[in-house]
């Protein structure tokens, strides 16, 4: 327990000191998106990594959060502080309602159902032109204001986004090591066994699905208020897959892994930009290598790698 707290404190220090090194550059802007993606990866990881339920529709919840917040603050001039929780509650209720029937499905069928959900939401963003502005997007979304500070620069947004992300992280870490976390893992391993042991697997799955959607919606709202412009293209099927990749590359069932995955997938394209037209090929190859040689994700892969190198050195030292 103490070790966990210490780890989180170190992480907090690491995140909060980052602007000292990057402030002023564009990397600051990318780090804001690392924060948003971390939140989304954690949300999906709670569902996929802990409860073992796949979702290919999370970009849809992310988009709903962004659009609900965006529409309420522009068309109806509500305060973002009211719009964000309202959006989260609406998305949570919707996810709960949909979750009830579709979480009875398993494996590929659940993947298909959530995929369908994501695509339906994407079509809604595109086609309800009067409400969402359609494919050309919704502009003029206000920045968030708190105690007289308008969050309109990258550095300010960094602290805002990461502040929320850290709270989400702490909450998820707690959840994961609580009774609920253990119940989730039990459902992951064997739903029947979990039920025999007195876990209401059906309700638990719906609850975690709704929670995951709520966090995604929150990330969406924050995205809308930092970008001040949203268009459906950002919430398509591709993004759902990208989120899934973040979770898998980072490490299933690890909150810090989600951060690593989100950070890697958000930053990697930026570093590969120097390779011009070949960046996509290198990007793909790197992902393949990582999945092949670090099946447990970055969070377990890196320590393993170090151990191997260290072990080899020790052996050669003996000889």
């Amino acid at each position: 327990m103490k070790r966990d707290l210490l780890l989180f404190a170190c992480f907090l220090l690491f995140i909060m000191s980052a602007p000292q090194f990057f402030a002023g550059g564009y990397l600051m802007n990318v780090l804001v998106f690392v924060g948003i993606n971390t939140m989304l990866a954690i949300a999906l990881n709670l569902l996929l990594g802990y409860a073992g339920q796949i979702s290919l529709g999370h970009a849809g919840f992310f988009g709903m959060g962004a659009y609900l917040s965006g529409i309420m603050t522009t068309t109806y001039s509500l305060n973002p502080w009211i719009a964000m929780p309202v959006a989260a509650v609406v998305v949570g209720c919707l996810a709960g309602l949909i979750g009830l029937p579709i979480l009875k499905l398993k494996g590929h069928y659940l993947a298909m159902a959530t995929l369908g959900l994501g695509i339906i939401l994407f079509i809604v963003f595109n086609e309800t032109v009067d409400l969402t502005g359609g494919p050309s997007g919704l502009s003029g979304i206000p920045n968030i204001e708190f105690a007289g500070i308008v969050f309109d620069s990258d550095v300010k947004n960094y602290y805002l986004i990461w502040g929320v992300t850290l709270v989400v992280m702490l909450f998820s870490l707690n959840l994961a090591s609580s009774r609920i976390g253990r119940a989730l893992r039990a459902v992951h391993d064997s739903e029947v066994a979990a039920q025999v042991l007195g876990v209401n697997a059906r309700i638990l799955k719906v609850q975690i699905f709704a929670l995951s959607a709520v966090i995604s919606s929150l990330a969406g709202s924050l995205y809308a208020h930092t970008m001040t412009f949203i268009s459906p293209a950002s919430f398509g099927f591709n993004f759902s897959i990208e989120l899934l990749t973040m979770v898998v590359i980072g490490g299933l069932g690890s909150i810090y892994g989600s951060f690593l995955g989100a950070a890697l997938l958000t930053l990697l394209p930026e570093f590969l930009r120097g390779a011009n037209d070949y960046d996509i090929i290198i990007y793909g190859a790197l992902l393949m290598v990582m999945v092949m040689y670090m099946p447990g994700g970055l969070v377990r892969g890196f320590p393993d790698l170090f151990r191997k190198i260290f072990k080899k050195k020790a052996e050669s030292g003996h000889a």
Binding site: G25, Y26, N29, G137, M227, F229, A233
Partner: peptide, 17 residues
């Protein structure tokens, strides 16, 4: 790549870096 988020990041990069 036609992505609004990327466009914003890259615009910031062009201006700041």
């Amino acid at each position: 790549t036609g992505d609004a988020t990327k466009a914003v990041q890259l615009a910031t990069k062009l201006i700041k870096d």
